[in-house]
Design a protein around this nucleic acid. Sequence first.
RNA 1: GGCCCCAUCGUCUAGUGGUUAGGACACCGCCCUUUCACGGCGGUAACACGAGUUCGAUCCUCGUUGGGGUCACCA
Length: 491
Amino acid sequence: MTAPVRVRFAPSPTGRPQVGNIRTAMFDWLFARHTGGTFILRIEDTDVTRKVEGAVEYIMEGLKWLGLDWDEGPDVGGDYGPYYQSQRLDLYKQAAERLVEQGNAYYCYCSPERLEAMRKEQVARKQPPGYDRLCRNLSPQETAAKESAGIKPVVRFKVPTEGQTGFHDLIYGDVVFENSNIDDFVMLKSDGYPTYHLANVVDDHAMKISHVIRGEDWISSTPRHILMYRAFGYEPPQYIHNPLILGPDRSKLSKRHGAMSILEYRDDGYLPETMFNFIALIGWSLDDKTELMTRQQLVENFSLERMGKTGAIFNKEKLDWMNGVYIRSLTIDDLTQRALPFLDKGLPENIKRPLDVDYVRQVMPLIQERAKKLAEIPELTKFFFTEELNYDPALLIAKNMTAESTLKTLEVASQRIQPLSSFNEEVLEALLRPLAEELGIKAGQLFSPLRTAVSGETATPPLFEMMEVLGKGRCLKRIDEAVAKLKKLSS
RNA sequence: GGCCCCAUCGUCUAGUGGUUAGGACACCGCCCUUUCACGGCGGUAACACGAGUUCGAUCCUCGUUGGGGUCACCA
């Protein structure tokens, strides 16, 4: 019989959730949901010095945004709490003391300064850096002396000096390390907090975690964990290390690369559907062609076996493409609702708020297939909202046209548009396309100045649809303004 | 540097002891077209190298090279 699947995402609250960590959380979640297991959120706040205020909230915000709901965690509780490691200090202390009593660990009184000097020297002598085990065999008298001197010790694990320690990773297979290459690492710090090594072993066991999914950068410390499980007499969980997300230079993705929190992607206007789909595809694939998948499809198809073992560069261009695909798949109402906050934030301040939702809804179809991120929608649509257009009058003049001919063309267009009783795409097309012919110019030579006159831009949605949304009054006013600009230009 | 991991187009990837080595992004053409997009069609582009095993290796083994990770009282 196999134990029920219980996986945890165990972030350290040191800032905003990075995509690499979020990906691990996604794999945890996908695996739990696929197997009907339990997904647990545990906060590893054992480094008082690195703790960042609000980080836990950010992490939860990021998870929720992607729809990664947890079954047990700090806010929802569960049978294995508390879910903050800072609230489980006694457990770690007891565990550490137990190993000391068993002879698997010992108190170390070495000062940070001594350790620092030791390391420096080891590096200078080209020796592999590592604790020299000075305190491993302290006599009771020496220990007593250190204690009475008031030195707060750390607890170090007594790593066997011979033999090997290995484990079977579900992705990487068997990985074996020589014990002689592992130093006596710290389990419990002098402030009474555990290190990651101790805390994760104690908690994963206490919380009955069945599978540990984490970044590949943890592989080299896994033997320490195995050694601890053995010392405690616990059965280690299954390990699944996944390859890292790399920056463009192929090194581990970090702030140096502008790395970015998942929340920044949200604020840039990437849809959660996109991020979910895209991130799942970094290091995992279904087959040789399926790329666009819903959350549900991902849950159904996810499997550890199809995870790769090579690090992957985060391909931003492809992300943009995929986001465009998802934006295009939205209904107009949905797109409108999602765009609203971005418009509110990104449109010039002098535009009246709140925005007219119905008007926004009319504009959306015109940019839906053009927007790659929600955050670029204000720029794409600003001329629908602003009164004043500022553009270089020279942009009004199309190919093989002059200021004079353009001026004349616009004047005629204005005259013809004025009497229109209905003002929509069809009517405009029926009026303007023949007009170009009548004037003896190409369609583009008429449409292009109109486009610029009406929008102030040279790249816009289709002219007639745009004019329809803008409305007759505003279009005429803008055409007349363009005429005035041209007059000024030629005078 | 020690230890560990990895290696298919520029990028993300599929793949098999015998394939024209497949897909996607990007890129380049062409088409559509009032601009920009979208869309359609087509194209350039990869098995790091060297041995070995084998009738035959991209695929299996070893080595080389390259890249990455890790060596804290951080996770």
